[in-house]
């Protein structure tokens, strides 16, 4: 198997894609955001239970490729307990990582997505649920990716 492919589809990504965590609807969610990638049809909803500024619980539902699903699975695991400012800061770091390939030590399991930068067409897959999460902590809504730089609709 090609080295770049092994960088893209790391064990942790394949494992999360196969058995996604938090893959459910949160009935008591008070923040919901929807993320779509109109060009490829990826489609996720991120559910958050927020207490003031803090994410108490997170989940997601939807469909998409291994990269987007694993990304949403890890995201919903990692942001529990974090504040809105933490989530926004992490969004910036993930965005930098998937576009440059540079992951610092603080990224933990998320560093598995650094290999995405070698596949420009797949950056939007890795970042889609992060856009939805960013919209959700800010109040919810719908986000859509168009080209490299997703925008809120």
């Amino acid at each position: 198997m090609n080295d770049d492919l092994n960088d893209l589809y790391q064990e942790v990504i394949l494992e999360h894609a196969k058995s996604p965590r938090n893959f459910k609807v949160l009935p008591d969610a008070n923040r919901v955001a929807h993320g779509t990638n109109p060009l490829c049809g990826d489609n996720y909803t991120v559910y958050l239970v927020m207490d003031g500024d803090v994410v108490k619980d997170a989940s997601f539902q939807g469909s998409g490729c291994a990269i987007s699903k694993a990304s949403a699975s890890l995201l919903t695991s990692i942001i529990k307990g974090k504040t809105r400012a933490d989530v926004e800061a992490l969004f910036g770091k993930v965005h930098d990582m998937v576009t440059t390939g540079h992951a610092d030590d603080s990224m933990g399991k998320l560093a598995a997505f650094a290999g995405v930068h070698k596949f420009p067409a797949r950056v939007k897959c890795a970042i889609l649920s992060w856009h939805a999460a960013k919209a959700a902590v800010a109040g919810g809504g719908t986000v859509s990716t168009e080209g490299d730089e997703p925008k809120a609709e």
Binding site: D42, G64, A66, C125
Partner: peptide, 19 residues
């Protein structure tokens, strides 16, 4: 997912479309 099929096929030189 079709996108994963197309990404991997591309690395083997096979141009498909997924979506």
């Amino acid at each position: 997912h079709a996108h994963d099929v197309v990404t991997i096929a591309d690395r083997y030189g096979v141009a498909l479309r997924g979506g």
